[in-house]
Design a protein around this nucleic acid. Structure first.
Lengths: 216, 216
DNA sequence: AATTAAAGTGAGTAATCACTCATTTTGACG
DNA sequence: CGTCAAAATGAGTGATTACTCACTTTAATT
């Protein structure tokens, strides 16, 4: 079997639902959009790389933009997946995570594996968000509706326990996300060839984050 | 006089060196590349917005890519400008900055003003770096030759004074940069419409950074 | 006023673009 | 094997692309 389980997982579909050719198209599109950008990639190039006729692409996706959205939408959902689970906040309040640090460690590790697995699709999402306002709006909507409120509850919970600095919750959320995202960006996009010791560097990043957010 | 001093400053040229039409072309290109991306912007659109004939663009720039580089190269240099000054490290060692915090404050404020002034050009640089490996290589070269070494000296200086955690200097550099860049990215790109109190939020960011990097 | 070089113009060009559609291939069924 | 619908094909379409070049306009100097 071809090693494409990740594609099914990303798109959240069963193996029977997608034909071999359709898989080839999606994989080729993800790779080329990630490398050259959506606008600079032609449908004929995608067809060539996927080993199908150009017309086949348009059998499955009405337009080139539809093909982009078929990649970007699932990736967007997976990007915030941990926060979509209902039991997520519940876990925090029922002492699944006794300290903010444990919560952060869980999220960090989880998102690290996520980026490692789906890097090209994630690149497509974030690169194209800069140019397509509809994608940006979708992200903002999902973030406000599913991430922000839950994250805020969690932060306030640990602030009341006296663990976290009394910054506005939005500030703590921002600093937490940019610290984690800053590592992942440096690790996988800016300097992927640097000889990283991932575990150590993540440990230092968490120490930095927790010291920075500690109540003083 | 048209308010275009920023363009001369960015390109680092005198006012006489560029004709009115050439300025129009550069400004239109910066705005459209920032909004729609280089590949999705046609030279005919740029000419229209600049109020010139399409041929005029190619009188000044041999190719469309040349036009992009005429924007990106100066922006890249300005992005790391503070580290290009020879006296920069000297200032640190001669107690111009007694503590790492003062150094960070100076850089932070300086880069905040920089991003605020040249935002569209900066967007072009970072967006297109993802797609043009020649731009990425140029950035890496400049960073290694002009930023990394000096930054490392500064970090080691304050580590020896016992101010900073004994993380590897590269880690401290990374955490410093991603914390500052994380604020600027959130402030100017991700959520530019949020009612920011810039001074307070930058103060909190510095507190976070210094506590995170403090020797424990 | 005449000269001249530089700046600007815009119609023209070959190549490529996203997309269509009449036709062929495929594979599951009787 | 024969039937048939779905999947796949690729030549063809009009629109758009980056770029060229013969020509005109501008403006400074004689």
């Amino acid at each position: 079997m071809d090693e494409r389980k990740w594609l099914f997982d990303l798109l959240n579909v069963e193996e029977q639902q997608l034909s071999e050719k359709q898989l080839n198209i999606l994989q080729a599109a993800i790779e080329m959009f990630a490398e050259k950008g959506y606008a600079a990639t032609s449908t004929s190039e995608i067809a060539k790389r996927a080993g199908v006729a150009e017309g086949t692409i348009f059998r499955h996706y009405k337009t080139k933009k539809d093909l982009l959205l078929a990649i970007v939408k699932p990736t967007l959902f997976q990007s915030v997946a941990p926060f979509l689970a209902k039991k997520f906040v519940k876990d925090v309040f029922e002492n699944e995570y006794e300290h903010y640090e444990q919560f952060v460690r869980a999220v960090f590790k989880n998102r690290y594996e996520f980026v490692k697995t789906y890097l090209p699709a994630i690149r497509v999402l974030w690169q194209e968000m800069a140019f397509h306002s509809d994608i940006k709006v979708q992200f903002q909507t999902i973030f406000i509706n599913h991430v922000y409120d839950k994250f805020k509850q969690i932060v306030e919970h640990f602030q009341q326990k006296g663990e976290l600095a009394l910054f506005p919750p939005e500030t703590i959320i921002r600093l937490t996300i940019t610290t984690i995202a800053g590592f992942l960006l440096t690790r996988f996009i800016v300097m992927p060839d640097y000889p990283w010791d991932d575990e150590q560097e993540m440990e230092r990043t968490i120490q930095f984050l927790m010291n920075g957010l500690k109540k003083t």
